[in-house]
Design a binder for these strands. Structure first.
Length: 516
RNA sequence: GAGAAGCUAGCUCAGUCGGUAGAGCAACUCCCUUUUAAGGAGUGGGUCCCGGGUUCGAUUCCCGGGCUUCUCACCA
């Protein structure tokens, strides 16, 4: 393998010619580089309305060459750094011999440093007239050429696979991609600041766990050689964070990766970022307040508004959000009223099935009353929850870590916020009765025995922790990737994860395997 | 895991009812010192995703495979 394209060969020849001339195409450093945006503000005014004086002192900056307009013995270049773009004017009148040689051998994608005097061209463009031009890195693998005019982009890269597989190209070429990940970083920072300001402490709990509990999902398995044990990548940090509440910390959070060995889709990546927040002496009502505050604050802080465009919709994150109970939301959307079963100790599975069938849902493969109800909810209610909605009081049967509503045998103090038809988080008053917790784990285990695919594994040490005593506690988890999708107006989770998981490319394995 | 679509020059895309292919941008050569999707003249560039079959001949038709995207399934 490794046949070079014509373009790559040409670049290598230029590289050789540059080295021949005694110029290092990869110099060690370029000191005192000023960022382009502040430099432009300083030289040309914040409104781009100032003209620098004739004798303005030279400035020094650097970036990637993204446009070359060759006028013969002089050229107009555009260079781009993390903060913006600026035009460079360079020619043989001001450049020394070596620098001019670099100019003549310059390619799109090269990284250069320049020193030059700010001035305006005839047409008024803010420009730097280069006195020196230093090659800092030669581009040997040509980038796609993207041209822009009046905000319109021509011939950008649209090959989605290339954008995800070689994100560095996507970032180098597409300003939208760059902006998305800047926004992601701002959101995460604002979230941390928000929580720190309220007295929360950020902690780190194990990502490799002997028991992958805290959620119901298939884990990744790995192996520790020295201990000779099987370990799982965590599917959730929940049980460890609650151990910290037992230990006496009262406000903790963890913002980091979880891993689930499940399908990949526009809404699922095998590793994804979650924040989980626990507050002792609080309950799910406090978590509802917190949820609304967090979303509103993050939007205000990072986007300057609580009104977000998403696809063809306009989402308003302004508080207060609509709140509705789980069963009422089903009644609202389908007319089916499961509330009337709340008095029954063992609500009828068959009746639930009949009700589901009456609105065209097949309850095949389901075993319990509450599974049928949850099917109705996820099929008929979830997709309709476009504006922020807090759905409260989930079935106990599918909430093994949440505290029961006092006096209610079937429902728990749990809620989920929904936006754009997607679950954005999960929260509850944490179950802190060790005996009840043990029963719930057992219930999960017997569901597994009777054929449920994914249930929550028992964690005996966690039960022991609860026996030591955990104060009443409110917990909240928020999916960060989905939050960023909402804020960045992206429909695929891959657009908000820098390096989403893709099948590794197979080079010429075909020939090799067929050669046998 | 299932179905559908796609894969042609560095990029964005045409096209071949089966006779090995084209545009724009990029590249190369030349002209041009205030351009900005710069302009003008010329040139080169392809395992048409991979393998097999049918055929005189396959990028095109058939079969198998790969990768991606979308939908569904699974999925806190």
């Amino acid at each position: 393998m490794g046949a070079l394209t014509e373009l790559e060969e040409q670049r290598l020849h230029k590289l050789a010619a540059i080295q021949q001339k005694g110029i290092d195409p990869y110099p060690v450093r370029f000191s005192n580089k000023e960022d382009i945006l502040p430099l432009k503000v300083r030289s040309f005014g914040a409104e781009d309305d100032k003209t620098p004086p004739e004798d303005a002192p030279p400035v020094k900056t650097a970036g990637r060459v993204v446009a070359i307009r060759d006028m013969g013995k002089a050229q107009f270049l555009q260079i781009q750094d993390q903060t913006g773009r600026v035009q460079i004017y360079a020619g043989n009148k001001t450049l020394g011999e070596d620098d001019y040689f670099i100019l003549k051998n310059l390619d799109l994608g090269d990284i250069i440093g320049i020193e030059g005097r700010p001035f305006r061209t005839k047409t008024g463009e803010a420009t730097l007239h280069a006195n020196t031009l230093t090659l800092l890195a030669k581009n040997l693998s040509p980038l796609p050429v993207v041209k822009e005019k009046d905000g319109e982009t021509f011939d950008g890269i649209s090959d989605i696979e290339l954008r995800y597989r070689q994100r560095y190209i996507d970032l180098a070429v597409n300003s939208d991609a760059r902006e998305t990940f800047v926004l992601r970083s701002k959101i995460i920072r604002a979230l941390r600041d928000f929580l720190h300001a309220r007295g929360f402490m950020e902690v780190e709990t194990p990502m490799m766990q002997a028991i992958a509990s805290g959620a119901a999902a298939r884990p990744f398995v790995t192996h520790h050689n020295a201990l000779g044990i099987e370990l799982f990548l965590r599917i959730a940090p929940e049980l460890y964070l609650k151990r910290l509440i037992v230990g006496g910390y009262e406000k903790v959070f963890e913002l980091n990766r979880n891993f689930r060995n499940e399908g990949i889709s526009t809404k699922h990546n095998p590793e994804f970022t979650m924040i989980e927040i626990y507050q002792a002496y609080a309950d799910y009502n406090a978590m509802m307040e917190l949820t609304e505050e967090i979303f509103e604050h993050l939007a205000q802080k990072t986007l300057g508004t609580t009104s977000l465009p998403y696809g063809d919709k306009e989402i308003s994150l302004a508080r207060p959000w609509k709140r509705v109970t789980y069963l009422d939301s089903i009644r609202e959307k389908t007319g089916l009223d499961f509330n009337r079963f709340l008095g029954d100790e063992n609500p009828s599975f068959d009746e639930a099935k009949t009700m589901a069938q009456s609105i065209g849902l097949k309850a095949e493969g389901l075993h319990t009353f509450w599974e049928v109800v949850d099917l109705v909810f996820s099929e008929k209610v979830e997709p309709t929850l476009v504006q922020p909605t807090i759905v409260m009081h989930f079935p106990k049967a599918i909430s093994p870590l949440a505290k029961s509503i006092p006096g209610n045998p079937h429902l728990v103090e749990r809620f989920e916020p929904y936006i754009t038809g997607r679950e954005m988080g999960n929260a509850f008053s944490e179950l802190n009765d060790p005996h009840e917790q043990e029963l719930r784990f057992n219930e999960q285990a017997s569901q597994k025995e009777s054929g449920a695919e994914e249930t929550m594994p028992t964690d005996d040490d966690f039960v022991t922790a609860l026996k030591v005593g955990m104060p009443p506690t409110g917990g909240l988890g928020i999916g960060i990737d989905r939050l960023v999708m909402l804020f960045a107006n992206k429909s695929s989770i891959k657009d908000v994860i820098l390096f989403p998981l893709l099948r590794p490319p197979r080079h010429d394995t075909h020939k090799e395997t067929n050669a046998e």
